[in-house]
Amino acid sequence: MKKGMVYIKNLMEVLILPIALLAVFAVATNGAFINSRILMTALRQSVMGTIVCLGLTLNLNMGMMNFAGGASMICGAVIGGNLAMATGSGVPGLIFFCLIIGVGLMTIQGGLYNAFRVPCVVLSLGLTMVYEAVPRIFYPEGCTLPIDMTKLALSPYCFIIMIVMCVAFYIITEYTVLGHNMKAIGENPAIAMGAGLNIDKVKLMSFILTGVFFSIGALMYVSKGSVDNVAAMGSMPVQMESFTGMFLGKFLGKNVNKAISVPVGVFSMKLLASGLTIVGLNSNMQTIIQGTILLVLLSYAANTGLIDKIKADREFAKMARARA
């Protein structure tokens, strides 16, 4: 019972942000914001970001920051979509080709990472340029799917996919040996290695799993209808957009699994963007407000317990003086 209460309390800490945003915008719009269509649209818009963030979190759990997510998603979306249309295989073919390409690209990254022993950030910067160029060679005009192949971006399919991926993430990180190994390596790689973990293998597997998440992200991206190719780090905004939600979720939901906190963080950012649009603020003000809210919330999350700590320090000092 006590454990349950603690869990509910931790969950409420994560949900405070979206609830607060709903309350603020409900007041600002005289209740018009509390509208199922607005909420469903924001939820739908957060599906792709959530799946990409969960993939990035798998790498981040081991201390690896991967900038190639956006590029591999665009590559998977463009090539996968065009192959699916060329083979006439419809939605199953789209899923298959996106998976093959996404997993393949991340496997290559994992292999290079193990071979070269350079930081993931560095390697991913180079691979971003390569993965952006690959679809341009084969399909320079990008990919446009016909309407009947875009079902997966609609409800309820997109929500089913998001729930499946969140559950998969939860199971991998909590109930598999691989997930525990990843956490161990993330906490202290030297001790993990000393304890006998095969670091190379675990890291490669994490890249492959990340590739699965990026593939599904690519699937959701192309299912919106069309994807254009990019160049010169043009895929960064695709990824950066999700980063803020991911870090928000990570820091606000320290005591819950990231399968819950990350989607809540991404959803909150989308809710914020929708709310600011409805209230009539221009996009520049929206960006400023989003950045400010991110900083305020992160500093709150980083400093909770500070007041208690200061009080405890003062008490301790008092006791020490009394004894002296």
Binding site: T244, F247, F251, I288, G291, L295, L298
Partner: peptide, 8 residues
């Protein structure tokens, strides 16, 4: 994250 937020 801090510099990302300030960048925004």
């Amino acid at each position: 994250v801090g510099s990302l937020g300030l960048r925004m």
